[in-house]
Amino acid sequence: MTDRPAAAIAIITLGVADVARATRFYEALGFVLSRGASQDTISFFRAGGVVLALFGRDALAHDAAMATTSAGPFGGITIARNLPSPEAVDAAFAEALAAGATALKHPEKVFWGGYSGYVADLDGHPIELAHNPFFPLGPDGTVTLPD
């Protein structure tokens, strides 16, 4: 027996060009800002079972001891927001565009049996908006994975 805690993602931090601007964008998408934990240089949002953080891109690279070289248009990661229906995906897609997101892929039926589309946030981070009929959602939007 070990005292090692279960593997879990607690916080996803996005490096952004302007924390205040990115904060307004994510608030417009319906994410709830933790005013008690956030500061001018970092914002924390409740995001179901994880926390979404926004931190200056250069400061985040410095903190990780990495160079701030520009990656290609795709950085190898997306974040996803699962929704209860295809109609909710369409509504969230329109809401994101109204908040300033860029359309990457309009919502459509996808090969795995769901419905999804992609937008890019103000810093180009891709966000998938999806309905997955195989992953039930809790009242707080968290995904229930099958055993």
Rank of each mutant, 00 (worst) to 15 (best):
F111P: 01
G138I: 00
V110R: 14
G138R: 15
E108A: 15
P126R: 12
G113K: 10
F134I: 00
V119I: 15
I127P: 02
F135H: 14
P136Y: 05
Y115H: 11
P133W: 07
G138C: 12
P136G: 04
A130G: 08
G117I: 05
F134C: 01
E108Q: 15
F111Y: 12
D140E: 13
Y115P: 12
W112G: 03
G113Y: 11
L122P: 05
F135I: 12
W112K: 09
L122I: 14
I127E: 02
A130L: 08
V110P: 01
S116V: 00
T142R: 14
Y118G: 02
K109C: 02
G141F: 07
A130V: 13
P136T: 06
P126N: 07
I127A: 01
L129W: 02
G138Y: 00
V110E: 14
H131W: 15
G114K: 10
G124W: 07
L122D: 10
G114A: 07
P133V: 10
S116A: 15
P133D: 05
P133F: 04
P139H: 09
T142K: 11
G117S: 03
D140L: 05
D140I: 10
A120K: 12
P136W: 03
G114M: 10
D121T: 10
V119S: 02
L129Q: 03
G117R: 03
G141H: 08
A120D: 08
P136M: 04
K109D: 15
P126A: 10
L129R: 04
A120T: 09
G117M: 07
G138F: 00
G141A: 09
F111H: 12
F111I: 03
H131N: 13
G114R: 07
Y118S: 06
F134V: 00
H125G: 00
G124I: 07
L122C: 11
F111C: 00
P136L: 05
W112A: 09
D123Y: 06
G113H: 07
F134H: 14
N132S: 08
T142V: 13
K109P: 14
D140M: 07
L137H: 06
L137Y: 04
F135E: 10
H125Y: 14
L122G: 07
T142D: 14
F134Y: 13
G114C: 09
Y115M: 07
H131F: 15
D140F: 05
V119K: 05
K109L: 11
P136S: 05
L129D: 01
H131K: 01
F134A: 14
D121C: 12
G114I: 10
V119M: 05
S116W: 08
L122Q: 09
H131R: 02
Y118M: 11
A120R: 13
P126W: 01
Y115L: 08
D123Q: 04
D123A: 11
